[in-house]
Write a protein that binds this DNA or RNA. Structure first.
Lengths: 207, 207
DNA sequence: TTAAAAATCACCCGAAAGGGTAAATGAAAG
DNA sequence: CTTTCATTTACCCTTTCGGGTGATTTTTAA
């Protein structure tokens, strides 16, 4: 049911198998277990998993962080660092890659599971914080002349890339009316085009 | 130097003066001290402060939360709740108004100061998480055919509401070249206009 | 060195959008 | 009851944009 595949990058086979077992018992699919950087990169390229668990310390080097950077730049999947509590120095370097979560050694199966669940959830939610829905009340906080509800309807359609003709069809009004409303919007927003209206909204909210 | 004005809404004069003194010693301006809901609303209307400190419990009622809701809907300023640790029931109601921070009674001057500084900082940063800057690497993660760096330059200008003519002037190229690049962008983004390209980017990143 | 890819510019055409004025309707508020 | 105000539509005209083809130059990679 779950069908979520996870790549394990861990140089200690015992720990790797420990994680793999725990994952399988919780309905995850272990897409692969690899022991070094090269194999990890090959696996990402040829068989991209839904998530990755990276031991920071691989064979005495901080290769885990390098892999994280590559994932962050090239793939859109969450990754968790596997680290020990004492390892505070490297943690600072790990943080900047913005991992979806951490698994702290020694870990329990319940702890591992909840770490992954939280990480997956956070990663899924993360992008939704960006590009928020438009809210009339928020927009009007920044405008001297408030946008009416009807105008806001039009604005939302503009925001979603509709043409004037599409807006007219969507709202069952003539294209002339659409133009009129949009013209009023432009006056209030100090805009001159669909795209500049969108940019203006962003600019207003970010101030 | 600071020049940040803060409204205090607190029904106990001793506590209010306590806060006011601490604020002034840390270079804040106390815009007013009010003891009830009505005076708070009047103050917001006539002399909007840069931030507000709201005691949740005013004269035995939860008027602080009502004031918070009004601020959240009508003004673009951060507010902090003044509450006691034991007051866990009302805290649930307070949370939904998304305050910039909390000040827990009894408080120290250092604690008050850091609470406010953190709250102001968070509030200032908050909107910047919304509508993030476009990143070529992020966009290309979602596209079958990657956008070139030059095309990305054009895309950023579209994103900021520029017309083709403005883009041409900005990049010192002819409007014909602008059109050519944008046409290629449309093919890659599956878009048909400036605004639909912007919407498509948002849609891609939010998936 | 040569081939492929990216960037540049031109021209044409039809569709879409922007700017302005004028006016009818209907609902809400005084 | 009248006076706003939002919504609706029409018509005009100009500018801009989208779509297509073709060609030159520059850069990159093989």
């Amino acid at each position: 049911m779950n069908e979520i595949s996870i790549l394990i990058v861990e140089d200690e086979p015992i720990v790797a198998e420990d994680i793999a077992g725990a994952l399988r018992r919780n309905d995850y699919i272990v897409s692969a277990i690899v022991y070094n950087r090269e194999d990890a990169l090959a696996e990402l390229k040829n068989n991209l998993p839904d998530a990755a668990i990276l031991d920071i310390n691989l064979n005495g080097k901080m290769e885990g962080i390098e892999i994280a950077e590559i994932i962050a730049c090239n793939y859109h999947i969450p990754f968790l660092f596997l680290t020990s509590y004492s390892d505070k120095k490297t943690l600072a370097n790990a943080k900047v890659t913005e991992p979806a979560g951490y698994i702290v050694k020694p870990f329990t199966e319940a702890g591992l599971y909840s770490s992954i669940e939280i990480a997956l959830h956070n990663f899924a939610q993360k992008s939704k914080h960006n590009f928020p829905e438009l809210k009339l009340s928020t927009i009007n906080k920044f405008l001297p002349s408030p946008v009416s509800e009807r105008e806001f309807q039009l604005l939302q359609l503009i925001y979603n890339g509709c043409t004037n003709k599409q807006i007219a069809a969507e709202l069952f009004i003539s294209i002339n009316t659409v133009k009129k409303h949009i013209n009023n919007l432009y006056l209030k927003l100090d805009a001159t085009s669909h795209s500049s209206a969108i940019a203006r909204i962003r600019q207003l909210i970010l101030q």
